[in-house]
């Protein structure tokens, strides 16, 4: 058994290197297919992160009318927090709101002057507010209608503009992502078809090249598995080499584009290499498994037809 296996390996290696350029063509087309799939993985990672970041920014603010007692605000906060759809409710006092505004416009002389003037006229420039975040972006409509019908709704005004803007951005991102993914799937499918055709034809050529050896093998009573084995091993070798090539390209390109990603997602941690490392087995072993199943099936069909 071991002797048979080592000979199958030997014949597979011989055939791989004797038909070197055919093997190179196989590896290239398998690599291209895997590159397209990995591009989709990276694209998916980036769009998912972008959408999460936008979703994280979405909130609804309740601005309390002036001179509402803090106890009432606390009661409203407590009431809203009880809803299972709410992730967090943050109280921002009028002083905190002013401090945030001043910090944001630090160094702007005109704004500082206006604030000072307003302070002299009227002690309270900003109203106290509650910043509400939902567990899921889809829940905001329900939360808004609940707030509007709340028994305390006469105490506050609802600012839902920010929520509406971010919802539009999220929808747009989802649309772009879906379109690019669709194109990606179509390109992947085209590459998979090309790969299957290529593998099928290369096996056909390999069988033709080895027709004399195959005939002699059959003549002297070699097992079918021994005759077919080298072709399967050869195509698995192409898959392994293609995977190594693609891993090199993926990690190389990821290292090059990571600084741009860091800039794009400033303040958030989006690391492509870390993503590939964390999901290494799933991504690369999965790709190897799927591409091997496809190419070995294609080889099997070619052998069934041409090895008679």
């Amino acid at each position: 058994m071991f002797v048979q296996f080592t000979r199958i390996l030997k014949f597979a290696f011989q055939s791989f290197f004797r038909n070197f350029w055919l093997s190179v063509a196989n590896v290239t087309i398998l690599s291209l297919t895997l590159i397209v799939i990995n591009f989709l993985i990276v694209f998916n990672l980036l769009t998912m992160n972008a959408i999460d970041i936008v979703k994280d920014k979405v909130d609804v603010s309740l601005y309390f009318k002036q001179n509402i007692a803090i106890a009432d605000i606390e009661q409203v906060k407590q009431k809203i927090s009880q809803s299972p759809d709410i992730k967090s409710v943050e109280y921002i006092s009028s002083e905190q709101a002013l401090a945030i505004f001043q910090d944001r416009h630090k160094g702007d002389v005109d704004i500082s002057k206006t604030i000072e003037d307003l302070k002299k006229e009227d002690g309270q420039i900003f109203n106290s507010s509650l910043k509400i975040k939902a567990k899921d972006i889809a829940m905001y409509d329900k939360i808004l209608s609940e707030l509007k019908s709340n028994q305390y709704s006469n105490l506050f005004d609802i600012d839902e503009n920010q929520f509406r803007d971010y919802t539009k951005i999220t929808e747009r991102l989802n649309n772009i992502s879906a379109k690019v993914e669709l194109v990606g799937y179509i390109v992947s499918l085209i590459f998979i078809i090309i790969t299957l055709t290529m593998v099928y034809n290369s096996i056909k050529i390999a069988i033709y090249t080895h027709r004399d050896e195959i005939y002699i093998m059959k003549l002297v009573g070699a097992n079918t598995s021994f005759i077919k084995g080298p072709f399967f091993i050869e195509i698995l070798m192409s898959n392994i080499i293609a995977l190594l090539v693609v891993m090199g390209i993926v990690y190389g390109l990821s290292a090059i584009i990571q600084p741009f990603i860091d800039k794009l997602f400033e303040g958030y941690s989006v690391n492509i290499i870390a993503h590939f490392n964390e999901n290494f087995v799933l991504i690369f072993f999965g790709q190897f498994l799927v591409s091997s199943i496809f190419s070995v099936s294609s080889s099997y069909i070619a052998m069934k037809k041409y090895l008679k």
Binding site: V3, E213, Y215, I216, L219, V220, N223, F226, I227
Partner: peptide, 22 residues
């Protein structure tokens, strides 16, 4: 039906190799 790229010894041993002889 001899294999042209193998010498006579290899032609004979090939037949045995393919059948798993050690």
């Amino acid at each position: 039906k001899l294999l042209q790229r193998k010498n006579i010894y290899e032609n004979i041993s090939f037949a045995m190799e393919t059948c798993g002889m050690d």
